[in-house]
Every structure is written in structure tokens, then in C-alpha cells.
Nucleic acid binder design. Structure first.
Lengths: 197, 197
DNA sequence: CCGAAATAATAGCGAGTCAAAACTAATTTG
DNA sequence: CAAATTAGTTTTGACTCGCTATTATTTCGG
């Protein structure tokens, strides 16, 4: 009756619903909705090529218009800053403000998750990451959306020296910490999907 | 910068957002929102002790009032049926109507997920189920809510013979298929959390 | 080099979710 | 048998979300 893949979907849905409720609790003091917390977490993790409203819309699987309204509120609260792109003046770039970073530090929206995950070994977490990443990749393949992975598992990321990396897609240098942020254009290296890391 | 547990949370959130968008597509013909699809899927999976509005509210991590409205809509569309409990006349029992079952069969809301999961071996799926179940259990421990597992992994489920099981919590007989449905009062047997199945 | 198509983002609108609190009805407790 | 508890509904108001323009900028074709 209940096949294992369905059970897995059920667990993913339930965990997401739980985190959604947790985000609601965390945001309620500041009058923020769960979607606003998700947006702030996205901005905290994303690299400098993907910090646009469009990317956020793809990440959240929602529309540009909806995202625009969420950003409006975050801007009014002073939690984010918007600035124009130097080259293409249509695109708006986003970053967390100092206030936004402080808010994430204090409220720690993923605290409940982190506490719960402490009971699971690092190996088991890594293994599950690999499985879920494969599923996400497959779903995005059918769906057209970008997978949003980190640079250090991307085919375009080349290591030049100890500290210097280079992105062959955007043609720019990357620092070490930057290769651990998530990117809209990421294409996973083979070996990061079917096998564990 | 990005620890693995955080990456896992990110994946869970993103997969859930994707499924949410998928549920929206699936439900749009019938004018159903994602939450309504989730409710229908819940009713398709739940055992006869847990098919109440209250249980659904706990499952979705939302409030009774919100669930009440969702059920109102599903009832109006003829997708579910409500009936009073024999013993406690305050409680309302829910079941899918024939129309509701037909809708799930035709639209198959988890089709995208199932297709994507075909690329992952059964072993890896089972392993991930075990990991996510542990995390869910830990989060519920802190949160107070019930974990909602299947009877066949529950301490109260006793096997009487080949085909007959017995629930020591509700004190009733269970058929074989029933032990594979999810229950509100489930308490996982040791061994189903820390180890794989 | 100029007009048309494409792209990024915003604005306005209306339907509908959602939480909170008040309320009803049935059950349990003391 | 009254008080407290529990399951569920109703009401209200805030806010999300998808949809459809609209604006601004860039790219493409001739």
C-alpha cells in the first residue's frame, strides 16, 4: 500500500510543514511570514551571480510578482537592500542588510532543525543529502527550473590554486568561501548525484 | 560556511516548494489549493483511528480553524465525506468519497516525485527514509506533536498470526493492510530510528 | 541605427489561506 | 451536577499568491 518513495515524499512534506510552522513562530515577533524567512535564508546562502528577484522566484517555485511583494516588505523593514546591477540596469541585486543579518543570527530560524539533526551521524546526513539532491535534480530536469547547487560541486568550477577558483560559466574568479555558496546556474559534476560524496 | 545539516534542510525545503507548485498545478483544474491536495493525500494514507480534523491539523502543523475551512471546501466539492463517531459524538470522522479517490487516481499528485525517485535505488530511498524519520521524531519530541508513523513500526502493534495483528493502544484488531497505514498515536520501535530498516 | 521582440522587475486586483479568538456542543472530572 | 476539558465550527482581519497589465532596459533584424 505505502511504497517507500511515497513514504519519503510524506516525510519531506511533513518536515517542510513543521519548518514552515517554526518559521511562522520565529517571524511572528517581527510580523514576518514564513515566506519572508525563506527569502532571508536564501539571501544568506546565495552567491553574487544569483541574488536577484528572478532567482528567488525560481528558488521558491513561485511567480515574480509574488516575490516582488515579499521583497517590498523586507525592504520596508530594513532587512534587505536593493541595488542596481552595473552592467544590465534592468536587474536588481539583493543583499541582507546589517539588520537582516542580525535578525537571522538572533532568531536562528533553523535552530530546531539543527538540534534535531544532531542525533544523526554526519555520514547519514551526507548520504541523505546525496539522495535528495538526485531527486531534486531529476525533478528539475522535467520541470525546466535550475537546480541551485553549490559551486564546489559544479562542472564549471575550476580550481586554479590553493585558494583561487574560477567559474567557467561567468568567467570570473571565485574565492574559497564563495565556492560553498549556492548558484542558480550550477550543473552538478557527475559523481555527485548517483554516488555519495 | 554551509554545513551539511543546513544543506539537507535546504533540500527538504526546496523539494517541498517544488511539490507545492506541482500540487498547485494538479489542483488548479478543480480549483483546489496545494493544502487541499495534501489533505486528500493524508486521508488516503491514514488509518481509522486518525481520520479526524484534529489529526489533520497536527499533521499539517496548522490550526483547527484553518483545517475546518479546508474541509468545508472539500466537502462542498464532494471529494470527502464526514460522519459522526459512534462513541464520542463530538468527533467528526473523515473519509475520501468515491469522487475523491477517483480524483487522486486520475491526477496522481505525486507522479512527478515518483518518476524522479525511479532514478534512486530502493536501498538509498529506504536509508533516507530512516534518516528523515529520525529527524522528524526528534523535532516532534521538542515540539509536542505526534510523529504519525505506520503501525508496522509501532511498539503497540502485536502480530497475532499470519494475517491478524493487534493494536495494544486502541485495543483493536488490525488487518494486514491496515498495519501499513499511518497513525496518530504511533510510537516507533527502537531500531527503526537509529539504524536503517 | 532604428523599430520590434524579449527580458527584469513592479503595480494593481481579486480570490482565498491562515491564525486568533469567540462560540457551540459533548464528554470527563471532582 | 457544576466546572473544566476537548472537538469542532464560525467569524474576522491581515496577508499571500497568481494573474494581468505596465515600465524600463536590452537584444535582435534589417
Amino acid at each position: 500500500m505505502l511504497k517507500n518513495p511515497v513514504v519519503l515524499l510524506d516525510l519531506v512534506d511533513r518536515l517542510a510543514n513543521l519548518m514552515r510552522a517554526e518559521f511562522r513562530r520565529v517571524g511572528s515577533e517581527e510580523g514576518l511570514q514564513p515566506v519572508h524567512i525563506q527569502a532571508l535564508l536564501f539571501l544568506a546562502q546565495v552567491n553574487r551571480f544569483s541574488n536577484t528577484p528572478q532567482a528567488l522566484a525560481e528558488y521558491l517555485d513561485t511567480t515574480k510578482g509574488t516575490v516582488s511583494q515579499s521583497l517590498l516588505l523586507l525592504d520596508r523593514r530594513g532587512l534587505i537592500e536593493r541595488y542596481q546591477d552595473e552592467i544590465d540596469r534592468r536587474v536588481v541585486r539583493l543583499r541582507l542588510s546589517a539588520l537582516g543579518e542580525a535578525f537571522l543570527d538572533e532568531s536562528n530560524p533553523s535552530g530546531l532543525w539543527q538540534t534535531a539533526t544532531r542525533e544523526v551521524s554526519a555520514n547519514r546526513v551526507r548520504y541523505s543529502v546525496s539522495v535528495l539532491r538526485t531527486i531534486l535534480y531529476e525533478m528539475q530536469n522535467q520541470n525546466g527550473g535550475p537546480p541551485f547547487g553549490t559551486c564546489n560541486t559544479c562542472v564549471y568550477c575550476q580550481r586554479k590554486s590553493q585558494r583561487i577558483h574560477h567559474c567557467a560559466w561567468f568567467g570570473e574568479r571565485l574565492s574559497g568561501p564563495e565556492t560553498r555558496k549556492i548558484c542558480r546556474e550550477q550543473v552538478p559534476k557527475s559523481g555527485y548525484l548517483t554516488a555519495g560524496e
